[in-house]
Write a protein that binds this DNA or RNA. Structure first.
Lengths: 239, 239
DNA sequence: GTGTTGTGAATTGCATGCAATCAACACGAC
DNA sequence: GTCGTGTTGATTGCATGCAATTCACAACAC
């Protein structure tokens, strides 16, 4: 792994960890000192992140941290749902391979077990996030579309947009169980639709799945803002 | 405009003009000499283009020009259609502003006149490309979605995927007139649907519009390959 | 008090230099 | 003849230095 890649990763982590405030300036020299790398690498890393959308670059005025409104985030989630919906439709229409379907079913089975165990512990929630991401990736891969993975990856770099950015909530049935159950029903339905070559159904389900995810985040975010600090019992995971 | 931006543009033009062969290596020193800039700028520019997908970067092995299969291109065009379809749907559902609708109608009127004049001359074809791009951009802007423009822009950097990449063909009714007429019917129908707040219709029309564009390019490309050189009377414009 | 202009410090944009890495080729062992 | 290994030339990765631009702030005119 090159120094540049390490630097991009460190910067991403620092930004998502809230190390810098939105709309902050990001002077090359400061970052270079903080991360103990040369300005050249910082500049290359910031250039990369600018194209991912996390930071902005105005000529001769350096880089600034971007801020995202809640509307932008939910719009981007809906767009991810539309693109993933296309992937699900293609997987259904073109016919996912037996191996791909088997993988999806296996992930679903592990998720079934996880749901029955519940999400009271942090490792349980982390494992769910991984499985959820794996299922979404599997559906995208089954589409056989070369560009959709790139587009989804780009969108997923926005905060809260990724399929890994799941908000668990301790109220409402205990650690978001009702939300997760509903989302997991969607997962089963989408894979069933793909398996049955029902393209339009798979697409519609995937879109709705994303829209509901956006609504959930909107609710959780509204609840958070009232206290201006993460609600006790709310675990916000960003990816 | 900074030197970096100029360099990115020059490199893009050279690549799309076929100055380098697919899968060619792109040594920094050679490019720096060719373009009369320093290696630093070339490296920054190539890094930017790698994130756009035109070139690939393997650590310690430099940059290579990517090649695109016809399937990748038509898939990407279909994806653009799906995303633009979402934009059209949002424009319809959320309600495009009167100013936005007026702009679209004005562009349509100019395109009407262009169709009636035909496309026998190169300037006529170039003007059509500009108007077509303007209409697509207007629809995207009318969606009020913050991220769709970025995603479409990213896709449009792939060769032949952009709405500006229109293939005119001297056969078949004279300079692609029948194709253009059909596509222009779509334009009218989409704007009508947006104006009438018919979201699903606008979305479906936009998708179909893109799919047909992909089919046209597939046909023209197949015809080109047989001769291995652009058919006489075929003007291939990439953007 | 408000607006304008000038100056200096801070910061960016770019070029160059050096060390690390890789690919190619020759050479030798089997 | 084939495979492995050492060496060399080319190329990349990164650091640093310098000029150009911008921003902050103060001095000044009105």
């Amino acid at each position: 792994m090159t120094l540049l890649e390490q630097t991009v990763q460190m910067l991403r982590e620092r930004i998502l960890a809230g190390h810098y405030a939105p709309d902050d300036r990001l002077p090359e020299t400061t970052l270079a000192d903080d991360l103990n790398v040369s300005r050249t690498v910082v500049r290359l890393a910031l250039g990369a992140m600018a194209r991912e959308g996390l930071v902005e670059n105005r000529p001769n005025r350096g880089f600034r941290l971007r801020s995202f409104s809640l509307d932008e985030v939910t719009d981007a989630i809906a767009l991810r749902g539309t693109v993933e919906g296309m992937a699900a439709r293609l997987a259904a229409e073109r016919g996912a391979s037996a191996a791909a379907l088997a993988e999806m079913r296996q992930i679903l089975a592990r998720m079934d077990a996880a749901v029955s165990r519940g999400f009271a512990t942090l490792p349980a929630r982390s494992a769910w996030i991984e499985m959820n991401a794996a299922l979404h990736d599997a559906i995208i891969a089954a589409s056989g579309h070369a560009t959709i993975p790139d587009v989804v990856a780009q969108l997923s770099r926005m905060p809260l947009v990724s399929a890994r950015a799941i908000v668990f909530d301790a109220g409402d049935g205990g650690w978001g169980l009702s939300r997760v159950v509903r989302a997991h029903d969607d997962h089963h339905a989408v894979v069933d639709a793909i398996s049955a070559r029902q393209g339009a159904r798979a697409e519609a389900l995937m879109r709705e799945h994303a829209l509901r995810s956006g609504q959930n985040k909107r609710q959780s975010f509204a609840a958070m803002k009232s206290g201006d600090t993460p609600l006790p019992g709310l675990s916000l995971v960003r990816g």
